[in-house]
């Protein structure tokens, strides 16, 4: 490892890394030239700001009941109307952004880290390690995402934390596959083989040569997975096995809304629109990133088709 030749060779072979910088710049400008991706980015910024500054935006404490104003339609006082307990729907939708984003980010974080480690390990080592891991991932792929999540929550018990764990597990195999595939091709590239023949350690090769080259597909997958994670959390919360009251999740707001459809249409409309727009934001950004970074990868629609 202390062999100076390795460092020198590393430095010479680092050409790809300076190339990276201009590549990133090219990526950003390609992304900004894509109108849909910019639209997604703007929506996403709005979502993040809403979640961050939710406390300033809400017009009433989210669990404050005002029974005199039950089922009040949207008005200048209650922008999105009130629910069966007279709670302000706008404030609840705003705070729901925080729950959704939190579940999305944490669960995708779990699957990104776990999936990347598995994919790197399996792809780099190859052989039986690869076979065992990939067959294990096949098993997880054999369940429809939502059903696996339901089964996991059944075991763990419904709560915000367990929803994040369940969604994280469910999306791990996608990352493992994406990373493994990229590692397999990077592993045989000339600069990696050269560094290896100079005696660089596996750790060094993985960290300095493999990981930077598989970053692009990981980033794309992360953005698309955030969309699916938010969608999955909302579905779990809607059917009652996800986030539990009093945390205001969009999904279970819709399940309440369905019970009170006769009393107020607005209850069914606004929380769902929030889910839809958040999911679309991540999808558009993910598709844009894919076009900019890695045109060979499948679009969100295609990857959802064979999910």
């Amino acid at each position: 490892m202390s062999d100076p030749r390795v460092h020198q060779a590393d430095a010479e072979l680092e050409a790809p890394s300076t190339r990276h910088q201009s590549q990133w710049r090219a990526t950003v400008s390609a992304l900004l030239a894509n109108r849909l991706a910019v639209f997604g980015l703007v929506m996403l910024t709005a979502l993040v700001l809403t979640a961050l500054f939710a406390d300033l935006l809400i017009r009433q404490p989210i669990n404050a009941q005002n029974l005199a104003d039950r089922f009040a339609p949207p008005s200048s006082q209650y922008w999105f109307g009130t629910d069966d307990l007279g709670r302000d729907v706008f404030s609840r939708v705003v705070v729901g952004a925080r729950v959704s984003l939190q579940v999305g980010v944490v669960s995708v974080g779990i699957s990104l880290v776990a999936g990347t480690l598995i994919g790197l390990w399996a792809g780099y080592r190859g052989g039986w390690i690869d076979t065992v891991w990939m067959r294990a991932m096949d098993v997880l792929f054999a369940f429809p995402v939502i059903l696996l999540a339901i089964a996991l929550v059944a075991v763990l018990g419904p709560s915000l934390r367990n929803t994040m764990i369940a969604v994280g597990i469910v999306f791990t195999p996608i990352f493992a596959r994406v990373v493994r595939g990229s590692v397999l091709s990077v592993r045989e590239e000339l600069h990696v083989r050269a560094v290896r023949s100079l005696g660089a350690s596996d750790r060094r090769i993985i960290l300095r040569h493999v990981l930077p080259n598989v970053a692009a597909p990981i980033i794309v997958q992360a953005s698309l997975s955030l969309a699916f994670a938010i969608l999955t959390e909302a579905a779990l919360s809607y059917i009652g096995v996800g986030v539990q009251p009093p945390d205001p999740a969009w999904g279970y707001m819709l399940s309440d809304a369905q019970r009170f459809q006769r009393q107020g249409w607005w209850l069914s409309v606004f929380p769902g629109a929030a889910i839809f727009l958040s999911v679309m934001a991540f999808n558009l950004l993910g598709d844009g990133l894919r076009d900019a970074l890695d045109p060979k990868q499948r679009s969100v629609i295609e990857s959802r088709g064979v999910e």
């Binding site: 579905a235 059917i239 819709l254 369905q258 459809q261 249409w265 069914s268 769902g272 999911v279 679309m280």
Partner: peptide
């Protein structure tokens, strides 16, 4: 297709019920 792929199916169902069953 861009809209459809981001559409939460359960929300779409709730909207259909709202319009075609309730209203």
């Amino acid at each position: 297709s861009q809209i459809g792929v981001s559409l939460p199916d359960f929300w779409f169902g709730i909207l259909l019920i709202l319009v075609f069953a309730r209203m």
